[in-house]
Simulated assay, not measured.
Amino acid sequence: MTVRHCQQAMILALYKRLERRLHQAAAAMAASWQHDRKFKISSDPFSPLRLRFLTRCRDHLATLKAVKHSGGALAATDDALVRTVHSLSGAGGTFGFHELSERAYRLETLLLAETKADPVELGAALDALIQQIEIVLE
């Protein structure tokens, strides 16, 4: 065997080992999410993206709770809040979390309304979105 053939054989062996480890890691991740009966994570080609979305939902949930507990008025001038809600609205629907998407869209609509929305209605929409995210993350 030539040096080149040996190098190719070593690279192929390393590639196969890496591929096995990636499959094991993916299987472990899928197993950790098996409680989510809405989706067959292990056979769903979007599962890695869905998992990343769910991870981002945890961050968004923390942001939304901070806004709620700040006691300040909700406003469209809070760009971070509008971006967060818009992101949840779009990605939630894409990944099959339609109720989450609808609640995020409702809050986004209220935030961006031409006329100033009722603070009670805004608070209720925020609470509904927080509640739905918590349900999705259970």
Rank of each mutant, 00 (worst) to 15 (best):
L12G: 04
I41V: 08
P45G: 05
C6H: 10
G93I: 07
F97K: 04
K68W: 02
L54R: 13
K16F: 02
R56K: 14
F97I: 06
E138D: 14
P48I: 00
S47M: 01
L112I: 05
H35E: 11
L88N: 11
L64R: 10
S87L: 09
D78F: 01
I11A: 09
F97N: 03
L54K: 12
L137M: 04
A75T: 08
W33S: 06
E121T: 10
S89V: 05
C6T: 15
R20Q: 12
L81K: 01
H60C: 08
I41R: 05
K40A: 13
R4T: 12
I11G: 01
Y15P: 05
H23P: 06
Y105D: 12
P119T: 09
F53S: 07
V67K: 06
H69K: 03
R52L: 07
E138A: 14
R20V: 15
A66H: 04
Q34S: 15
P119C: 06
A26W: 09
W33F: 09
A31S: 13
L107H: 03
E114C: 06
A62I: 02
L137F: 02
A66M: 09
G93W: 10
I41K: 08
L74T: 01
D78R: 03
K38G: 14
L110M: 02
A80R: 14
K40C: 10
T84A: 02
K65Y: 00
T55F: 14
A104R: 05
G72H: 08
H23Q: 14
E99T: 14
Q8D: 12
R52N: 09
G71P: 04
I135S: 06
L111S: 08
G93L: 09
L111W: 01
F39Y: 11
L61D: 02
D44N: 10
R58I: 00
H98K: 09
L51E: 00
Q7K: 09
S42Y: 01
F46Y: 11
L110P: 00
I133W: 09
E102T: 12
A73H: 05
L81I: 00
A28Y: 10
A104M: 01
L12P: 04
R37K: 15
T77Y: 06
D118T: 13
